[in-house]
Design a protein around this nucleic acid. Structure first.
Lengths: 130, 130
DNA sequence: ATAATAATTGATAATAGTTATCATTCTTAA
DNA sequence: TTAAGAATGATAACTATTATCAATTATTAT
């Protein structure tokens, strides 16, 4: 992969932000200081970085993809109140693909799990306001 | 819910087809015999039927939603070769939301699992053609 | 350094899947 | 049988994303 200033900026933006930003969020973050930056470049690089393993892509049904700089495998929860993406450590969730493959007779290459719930922030602010 | 001929047709189309069709597929199926039918009506009714529990909506990231007339809870696998949606019985997959909720401290309302792999059909035809 | 090449960029058009809009047509219950 | 509300068909609009393409930038061989 040939170096580009834009790619470095984009990777930094995701790495520096613990919030798992969307392409749009990365664009909004960088645009002020880099008015020449194009949204297409942001999409292109986020996907490229994900493909070569420098970022993780978090696909959210009916919503924009998020990007995560934590490479260690883990799961995610979507907060149903604020929409934020929360990390769920891998070791909290059992592995069951081999078992399911055996039982179904299908070849299972992988599976995705996405949790939905209320993040700690929203849970505590709801308590405070009631 | 007020009766409508179209809704009955659409529900029947999904129920009669074991393949978990998309809105588009239902439309294509019904259109020849019902040229007055509109794609918007198909979308509207599939969603409405799903919302009131007469169908299950299978959300496929980066693809069209599928609709499933089997109401008994179960999971799905997307065949990476032919794109078909395969049922995975619920009892093949362990429950772990309570455990994860306790460990993370988050309130988890539900989670979705989607399997990816090769369905039996594609697996056997690949074997035959090689 | 210089030129050739390949990759990347910005701007924007195009795409897929779906929802919104709105005037018209059904359904239902009085 | 008519009034109120739902549902419909046609199509515009929308969101998130990818494709296109000429211009620019990075790398490599000379």
């Amino acid at each position: 992969m040939v170096y580009s200033k834009q790619r470095e900026l984009i990777l930094q933006a995701v790495t520096a932000n613990k919030v798992h930003p969307t392409a749009d969020a990365v664009f909004a973050l960088l645009k002020p200081a880099h008015p020449e930056l194009s949204l297409a470049t942001v999409y292109r690089n986020l996907n490229q970085l994900a493909k070569c393993g420098l970022l993780q892509k978090v696909i959210v049904p009916n919503g924009a993809d998020h990007f995560d700089s934590t490479l260690h495998p883990h799961y995610h929860m979507i907060c149903e109140k604020c929409g934020s993406v929360v990390d769920i450590p891998e070791e909290y969730v059992p592995h069951f693909d081999a078992d399911v493959a055996k039982k179904t007779g299908c070849r299972i290459s992988h599976y995705s799990i996405l949790f939905y719930g209320i993040c700690k922030n929203c849970a505590s602010s709801a308590k405070a306001s009631s």
